[in-house]
């Protein structure tokens, strides 16, 4: 099995993978970072979204071996010095999560949205930009409010 190395949440990591090993499997099973979730098998739900070299990627649809040398940020890597990222704080303040399963992907996709489009996001923009993330609990109402607030605080 080929060995790969990458930087995950600022730490250098390495491991052997099969050619078919998915990035999400590497993250969850090899690295034990179980905050990144798998909610579907067709790249639709977005529970697995991580940042790869600063951009949102569905880690269920990426091969680990193709990310040799990449810098990956998972939900575990967002808080700094014990303080949550403003987007994480905004999800808590606005009750933007219920069961928590889609949440890591939602938060990371939202951060990516702000990185691409800036802090001043309209409701329409937020709703459109979340098209790759499904939540079954919140009805999106409070997620939209959270993203708006989180964006302003980033």
């Amino acid at each position: 099995m080929p060995a790969i190395s990458m930087t995950v949440n600022g730490q250098a990591v390495c491991g052997d993978v099969e050619g078919r090993t998915l990035l999400v499997e590497f993250i969850r099973e090899k690295l034990g970072l179980t905050g990144t979730h798998v909610g579907c098998d067709t790249s639709q739900c977005g529970a697995c979204v991580v940042l790869v070299n600063g951009k949102a990627v569905k880690s269920c649809t990426a091969l680990a071996i193709a990310h040799d040398g990449a810098a990956v940020t998972t939900v575990e890597g967002l808080a700094q010095d014990g303080k949550m990222h403003p987007m994480q704080e905004a999800f808590r303040d606005n009750h933007g999560l219920q069961c928590g399963f889609c949440t890591p992907g939602m938060v990371i996709a939202s951060i990516d949205m702000v990185n691409r489009l800036g802090k001043n996001l309209s409701e329409d923009t937020i709703r459109h930009e979340l098209e790759g993330n499904i939540c079954r609990c919140t009805g999106y109402h409070n997620i939209v409010a959270a993203v708006k607030a989180g964006a302003a605080n980033m």
């Binding site: 979730h37 808590r92 009750h95 999560l97 928590g100």
Partner: peptide, 16 residues
């Protein structure tokens, strides 16, 4: 009241 459970879910420390 803000939810007590949110910190673990938001930081990837849920235990499913």
């Amino acid at each position: 009241v803000k939810r007590k459970e949110d910190h673990r879910f938001l930081t990837g420390k849920g235990n499913y």
